[in-house]
Nucleic acid binder design. Structure first.
Length: 293
DNA sequence: CGGCGCACCTGAGTGC
DNA sequence: TGCACTCAGGTGCGCC
């Protein structure tokens, strides 16, 4: 579920209630996530500590605690955070639970266990955060983000623009859903090699990235965001999808139906009329094998 | 170094 | 009803 908008919506949902709350007890399922849970560090630095704030870098949530420790969460494919009454019976796949001093519990649920939990002790927190920062790509809402920067990052690379946008080391926060939607909004074919994309198209891609992500955050993300428990609202952005999972449906342009192909092993949806290769040098094979229509 | 394919997991959906 | 198979929102590793 979680790309940048879902992670950000989760963060915004936690901000009103989490800061100031103390962690009374930490418990876990015993199952390993992407990596084993850092049990010792959780007990040493998170249990008993008080939340100061929750920040986000790329798709990582940074839970900052008084005293300087930091708990880092990545939601993977199916990770969800919820803030529920501690009497609530635990669901299957609740892998980490933090009992708070107000009787609520912060729960990390992750069916596929592609998520991860890290703890940075106070003494290491700063260098660790710098290290994370350097391996993450540029933030779409950061000051430096622009078409010009994307163009420079693309350089002489030849990979398809969709893979480029989804490469977390280059651009932060964009996953499969939003890569599809952004490229539709920008009118760029997902298979277009990045070295052939002209500057004005990069400007359009940068603008579309910010607009789509902003709209998705405002809509509460694209899926479940039940971090508020039963009173929480689901995300509604999926009703705005123009191409994602709309194989065979008519494009809003009226000129074609949405097609599907595979790029980098991921389902890729596009409109063959709206989304074109850059005008410069048009590669011979346009779009590979497509189904639909 | 860059690009690609696949592995890591579980569950939902589909078709026979 | 049951089984086999495909697919799913992310990341990182090994291979060429």
């Amino acid at each position: 579920m979680p790309e940048l908008p879902e992670v950000e919506v989760t963060r915004l949902g936690l901000l009103p209630t989490l800061p100031g709350r103390r962690v009374v007890r930490v418990s876990w399922s015993g199952k390993r996530l992407r990596k084993p849970l850092p049990r010792k560090l959780l007990l040493e630095h998170i249990q008993g500590a008080t939340f100061v704030t929750v920040d986000r870098r790329a798709k990582y949530l940074l839970f900052r605690l008084a005293g300087g420790a930091c708990m880092v969460l990545h939601l993977g494919m199916t990770g969800k955070l919820s803030l529920v009454d501690s009497n609530e019976p635990p669901a299957g796949h609740d892998h980490l639970r933090l009992l708070l001093d107000n009787g609520r519990e912060l729960r990390f649920n992750d069916v596929r266990r592609f998520g991860s939990v890290l703890v940075w002790p106070p003494a290491d927190a700063l260098p660790q955060e710098r290290a994370l920062d350097t391996c993450c790509g540029v933030e779409p809402f950061g000051e430096t983000f622009s078409g010009e920067l994307l163009s420079r990052l693309a350089g002489t690379r030849t990979k398809p623009v969709k893979n480029f946008l989804m490469d977390a080391r280059l651009v932060a926060g964009i996953g499969n859903i939003y890569a599809n939607e952004i490229l539709f909004a920008a009118g760029v074919h997902p298979l277009a090699p990045v070295n052939l994309i002209p500057p004005e198209k990069w400007d359009l891609i940068a603008q579309s990235t910010r607009r789509i992500l902003r709209e998705a955050i405002r809509a509460g993300g694209s899926t479940i965001s039940d971090f508020l428990g039963t009173s929480g609202n689901p995300g509604y952005f999926q009703v705005h999808f123009q191409v994602y999972r709309r194989l065979g449906e008519p494009c809003t342009c009226g000129g074609a139906n949405i097609r599907k192909t595979v790029v980098g092993g991921r389902a890729t949806y596009f409109c063959p009329v709206c989304q074109v290769f850059p005008a410069k040098k048009l590669p011979a094979g346009r779009s590979g094998s497509c189904i639909g229509d």
